[in-house]
Design a protein around this nucleic acid. Sequence first.
DNA 1: ATATTTACCGTGTGCGCACACGGTATTTAA
DNA 2: TTAAATACCGTGTGCGCACACGGTAAATAT
Lengths: 350, 350
Amino acid sequence: MKIRIKDIALKANVSTGTVDRVLHSRGDVAENTRKHVMKIVEEMGYEPNLIARTLASKKKFHMAVLIPDPEGNLYWKSPLAGMEKAHSEIAGFNAEINFYPFIIDDEISFHGEFEKLFCQKPDGIIFSPVFLDTSLKIIQICEENRIPYIFIDANIEGQNNLSYFGQNASRSGYLAARLMDYAVQTDGEILIINPSHEKEVTHHYTKREGGFISYFNGLLNTNKQLKIKSVNANTNSDSEINSVLDKCFKQNRSIKGIFITNSKIYKIARYLSNREINSVVLIGYDLLNENLSFLNNKTIDFLIGQKPEEQGYKSVLALFHYLLSGKKPEKTNFSPIDIITKDNFEFYKI
Amino acid sequence: MKIRIKDIALKANVSTGTVDRVLHSRGDVAENTRKHVMKIVEEMGYEPNLIARTLASKKKFHMAVLIPDPEGNLYWKSPLAGMEKAHSEIAGFNAEINFYPFIIDDEISFHGEFEKLFCQKPDGIIFSPVFLDTSLKIIQICEENRIPYIFIDANIEGQNNLSYFGQNASRSGYLAARLMDYAVQTDGEILIINPSHEKEVTHHYTKREGGFISYFNGLLNTNKQLKIKSVNANTNSDSEINSVLDKCFKQNRSIKGIFITNSKIYKIARYLSNREINSVVLIGYDLLNENLSFLNNKTIDFLIGQKPEEQGYKSVLALFHYLLSGKKPEKTNFSPIDIITKDNFEFYKI
DNA sequence: ATATTTACCGTGTGCGCACACGGTATTTAA
DNA sequence: TTAAATACCGTGTGCGCACACGGTAAATAT
């Protein structure tokens, strides 16, 4: 039998209105009465009925989301999809989400979209703090206006954010290296390809590379000789990728594995298919459709998945629950590091 | 602006009570009126407000769960935990779950617990149809009493179950074989250990073994020579495991990998540690704590995880949503096949 | 003819909560 | 002293729906 406001009012010898005022700190209650009511509330372990609250309240929960436009970066389709799924689940609870997509790599757009967002005075914000300076300004504004904010995908340490949903990038690089070590069975060279065009301040790429390298540095007694080499390339440009790879394969014919720190592994796979180079182990990130077809024909050996939909999904639910009932989520939420192969990818598609 | 019953009543020139009777097929409505109301309901795209419905309805949704007692098999702690999590989320919606744990491998207990369960006349049932005969009887009773039922973990094909939540066992065995192929880098023998004591009719173990073997059968041009050998052992008995392994290692000193089709891989790991046998690749199932510590010190190379909590979680939510709003879930729901290593296991623990 | 059943339908109440409104004491200002 | 401000609190209404109850008119029984 759940305790209702009416039960508390009865026991405290006050009206339900007074209990309500106490519970919502709406003032107009004598200090003594307040204490008395609060005591009984705690004694009886009152928990508000969220169903009734939602029905009675005309309040809309307005959440705003500031993330890169998926048009410019397909990866962001996934968090967006997760957010929309979460929204459909809580739409009945007067939850409203507005999306403010900014142009990736464009700090001006980032700032501009935030200004639009802020005009709507949302109750809470989810954003990806990719540009440090502007993000710190946003954080300050949120603090001043007491708007809770959640980081997604990228994180800025030491802030008063409600939560962070993202990935453990260095760990995933480390894991990728272990997989590479399993998959490459003879001596040779491992190539790491880093995207060179990214302008974001807080990026995962160097962390992934760092984790990858640290695995091989930590190896002591090995029965294989593996040399690790890093190169940079603008992975948006197919021609640049091709010329970089051409150069690498010209220099060194014993390349046994390639690890790329973003989702463009399908471009490497395409290159190798075209050049008819076989038996190179390929490891990269994210379940893009382009990647999956190469995974399926075994050109790509492993993909690392970071459950981007789940990040979007959980961040929305966390913010909503906080707004609805004040429940604070964990401050740091790493998504699992999924190892995807030809044999299990279909279970991870959304 | 959501359409309410009141809006429909207004447009149809009837009272809300009549609309309600139509919507709930409660009779006492003239056929003409019924058609007229239904037409307007469809026209306006009425969707009931589940919040208000829950608040107004005194109906309790009583769900019953018939699964093996986790005391007898630690694996089942996970689905149970998932179910309890789901329950805590929907408790506010008048959802009630009763658990009927039966003694694993004991069909009498299975049957007895079902009888207890059935006395309570639940609105829906989730159960693991491990014993075929009794399960078919249960299914028949459910059909007769129009009680929806969901299979979890095990499946019986061709039934009218609302849904099935479980794993793709043969696929996971196939995947395990691929991992074994990656991890074993020289010629040698691969040992498959099958539990021999299981009495359940619908078991995953042979399917896992089948998938594992089919991978190696499908290999054409290999640079390694790997021999596959299957043995049976009662994996509940440590002494039997030890003696079986002793025999295998005596016969053949070139065992390079061991795959066990259940969660008792930690017993193999313990054996190898005690005998100080190194560099044998170990692959098994499930994130038991015993397994994780051996994974962490790299005695175990890979664990296959099948998200058992998620199976429990989703099965409860699916049944509930069906009871609440008649929404049918997918009939078959395979959980992802997670590849777990030392580097990512912490993200999969619950 | 009146009584009774049947078919059909409208009204009213309450689920637990939020919040507007207005009321009564008490204090302060005029 | 009377008017006005303030502090504090209770009552009433409605959110959208489910369902009990009762009512009217027509059909049937007596």
